[in-house]
């Protein structure tokens, strides 16, 4: 099974560890993973800023890069929503290229959805004993129905889940919204952080790096340097790749006793 990994632009730039954790999860589950090196971005930032043409160009680029894969997996509900929902239903809705994009959408999965519903994994590489709270990212939740999948996997890792109030409420990231309307985004992040902390969890876990950076940014600004903010892939697989020593130390309190 040849699985293309769509790294996402944020993971590439800011948190390669999430990419390697994803890679590890897929490889340990027996996938042959390929990572097309020309990949850049799914086009969503342009798409949501009204730049339709560049979004279409980038969609075509993504299509070409993953044409040979049986599946494509991304550690992001947002990028996956862009591909699975918006390429087909909007950008190429009336285009002769639409069937190609339908095929792409059909083989494209958000990571947790892929692990649970395609690979049907029954175990994950790491154990994680600290209580976590899960933030449902908007696109994954509402465009793709990602809700129970990451929770199921977190339980597999042994992580107790302390649900926070309003776990489905937007954290305020919203791509460029987080900068254009920073004051509102900050307030939304502050609400999220308050709910997360009230849950008593030691780590805030999510499936989209944009949300996680937003939440972590607010958490740290409020002076909380303790609560961890992690992608679920990091929880499940650890934050570092064995080949790599120099990246940021994984923030994970993996339960070493197990």
């Amino acid at each position: 099974m040849k699985v293309g990994l769509f790294v996402t632009c944020l993971v590439d730039l800011v948190r390669p560890s999430v990419g390697f954790a994803t890679l590890k999860l897929l490889e340990e589950a027996g996938c042959e993973v390929v990572v097309p090196e020309t990949q850049t971005c799914c086009g969503q930032p342009g798409y949501n800023s009204g730049a339709r043409e560049v979004a279409m160009d980038l969609a075509r680029k993504v299509l070409a890069e993953f044409r040979d894969c049986d599946y494509v997996v991304a550690p992001s509900g947002s990028c996956s929503g862009q591909v699975k929902a918006h390429y087909v239903e909007d950008l190429f809705h009336d285009s002769p290229e639409r069937p190609e994009f339908e095929k792409l959408a059909a083989k494209w999965y958000e990571l947790s959805d892929f692990l649970v519903n395609v690979l049907k994994v029954e175990s994950v590489p790491r154990k994680f004993a600290s209580p976590v709270t899960y933030h449902d990212s908007c696109s994954g939740l509402r465009e793709l129905g990602v809700k129970m999948q990451p929770r199921y996997l977190l339980q597999m890792a042994g992580a107790p889940i302390h649900e926070m109030a309003e776990c489905e409420k937007c954290c305020g990231f919203g791509g460029t919204f987080s900068v254009k309307l920073g004051d509102i985004a900050t307030r939304m992040a502050a609400n999220k952080v308050a709910n997360a902390r009230a849950s008593g969890a030691k780590a805030i876990v999510g499936g989209d790096l944009g949300c996680l950076l937003n939440i972590e940014g607010r958490l740290r600004r409020e002076g909380d340097l303790e609560t961890q903010v992690l992608h679920f892939a990091e929880v499940l697989a650890g934050g570092s790749d064995d080949d790599q020593g120099e990246r940021r130390p994984p923030q994970i309190n993996a339960d070493k006793r197990r």
Binding site: V7, V11, D12, L13, V14, R15, P16, S17, G19, F20, L23, V35, E37, S178, V179, K180, L181, G182, D183, A185, T186, R187, A189, A190, L213, N214, E216, G217, R218, R220, R221, V229, D241, D243, Q244, E246, R247, R248
Partner: peptide, 26 residues
């Protein structure tokens, strides 16, 4: 240039090298 973000939130810094670089090395 990103005051809209940093006025009320810190920006978690990148790890320092891109996934692309690290994966290429691997």
């Amino acid at each position: 240039g990103l005051d809209g973000w940093t006025k009320g939130r810190d920006m978690p810094a990148p790890e320092g090298r891109t996934f692309r670089e690290l994966y290429g090395e691997r």
